[in-house]
Design a protein around this nucleic acid. Structure first.
Length: 111
DNA sequence: TACCTGACTATTT
DNA sequence: AAAATAGCCAGGT
C-alpha cells in the first residue's frame, strides 16, 4: 500500500455519498466541487471502481450534465440504474431524468 | 514505459 | 439548431 494523499477517487466517493436520496448530481458538478473542473471523466472512472458494495456508494445518483443515464450499461443490468432512481422517487423516461432541475443536487452548494 | 480507451464537457463547424 | 471535433486526466493493458 502506498501512502498517497487523498485520492481523487476517494474525494468523489465522499461527495457521491453526500447526495441525498431523491436527488442526483452530475460528473462535472462533482469534479468542480473537488477543484478539478476538467476531470469530469475521472469522476465516471471513479464510479466504475466504486462498484464495491462495501463502499455503499449510490452511484446511480450520478448522471451526465444532460440528466442522461449514460452509465446504466455498467450495472449488472442496463435497467438497474433506472429502477434504483425510480425507487427513490426520481422520474426517469427513456434513460433521461425528468424534472432534472428539481432533482439536481449541486455538491458545491452543499459545501 | 507507452499507447489506447473512456459513466464528460465545451467549443466550433 | 444539430452534429462533429478537441481538450482533459487517469486507469488498464
Amino acid at each position: 500500500m502506498k501512502q498517497k494523499q487523498a485520492d481523487f477517487f476517494d474525494q468523489v466517493y465522499a461527495v457521491v455519498q453526500c447526495i441525498p436520496a431523491g436527488r442526483v448530481s452530475t460528473y462535472g458538478a462533482i469534479a468542480r466541487a473537488l477543484g478539478a473542473a476538467r476531470s469530469s471523466r475521472l469522476v465516471g472512472t471513479a464510479l466504475i471502481m466504486a462498484h464495491d458494495p462495501r463502499l455503499s456508494i449510490p452511484v446511480h445518483r450520478v448522471v451526465n450534465r444532460n440528466g442522461l443515464l449514460t452509465g446504466k450499461q455498467h450495472y449488472g443490468s442496463p435497467s438497474e440504474m433506472q429502477e434504483r432512481l425510480e425507487a427513490e422517487g426520481i422520474v426517469v423516461l427513456e434513460d433521461q431524468v425528468q424534472r432534472f432541475d428539481q432533482v439536481f443536487w449541486d455538491p458545491g452548494e452543499h459545501l
